[in-house]
């Protein structure tokens, strides 16, 4: 008997369940086919503008910096301002996300844009979030050809663009969007929920920013 069969057999024996029990199977299949949404906190159930305001407030609460711009074409200038204000080199790592590529980066003559996955030496990464979550100030990043996961973790500074219209009230709404975008039961290879810059409290429980991931997270909300 394989380990798999042995374990499943033990589980069934302990539960006193039979593999032929149709009602049990139906209960499990039903939950998988139509997932109940559960308890959704009232906190994020707001009108469009209030939701964006809550998102910004919650993100700042977890030490992200937040900036709102009107249009997508304002993003490159906002990125350049961020770099200048912190004396960072005019060079960013950026995946080939079409939403980012459509922005007028060429206007910034001195900015170097490195495409592809992030490496050891990258100081600043720029990504586009797919969804924002107002209740916790979280952004959701879907991996894919234009969205390397390494950009979310290796650079010291992570700048993330999120469209105001993509900010949802709660986590479950992100899951619904995932099902819509990728199909039921399907996922991107990696879905990163990010809530503030990286931190650790492992030494004497003193909370410090910049553990292994970015020391700073800057969110640019468009719209």
């Amino acid at each position: 008997m394989s380990a798999r069969e042995a374990i499943l057999k033990k589980v069934r024996a302990s539960l006193g369940a039979s593999p032929e029990d149709g009602a049990r199977r139906e209960a499990a299949e039903h939950r998988l086919a139509s997932p109940p949404r559960g308890i959704i906190p009232a906190r994020g159930q707001l009108g469009d503008e209030e939701r964006v305001v809550l998102f910004c407030k919650m993100a700042e609460k977890v030490s992200a910096s937040v900036q709102r711009v009107e249009r997508a074409e304002d993003v490159p200038a906002a990125v350049a301002d961020y770099l200048r204000a912190r004396n960072l080199p005019a060079s960013v790592r950026m995946g080939g996300d079409p939403r980012l590529e459509a922005m007028p980066w060429a206007r910034l003559k001195s900015l170097e844009i490195k495409n592809g996955k992030a490496g050891y030496e990258d100081e600043v990464g720029v990504s586009h979030a797919s969804v924002g979550v107002a209740e916790t100030g979280t952004i959701a990043m879907f991996s894919g050809p234009g969205n390397p996961t390494t950009v979310n973790f290796l650079p010291e500074h992570h700048i993330v663009v999120v469209d105001a219209k993509d900010i949802e009230g709660d986590l479950e709404s992100v899951m619904s969007r995932v099902r819509e975008k990728f199909g039921k039961g399907q996922m991107p290879r990696t879905l990163n929920f990010i809530t503030g810059p990286s931190r650790s409290g492992d030494i004497e429980q003193k909370l410090l920013l910049g553990a292994h991931g970015p020391r700073a997270l800057h969110l640019i909300v468009v719209g």
Partner: peptide
């Protein structure tokens, strides 16, 4: 925390 900094969902290889 309301949410930990990184909640990562991984599905299969690259």
């Amino acid at each position: 925390q309301d949410m930990s900094v990184y909640t990562t969902l991984s599905t299969g290889p690259r």
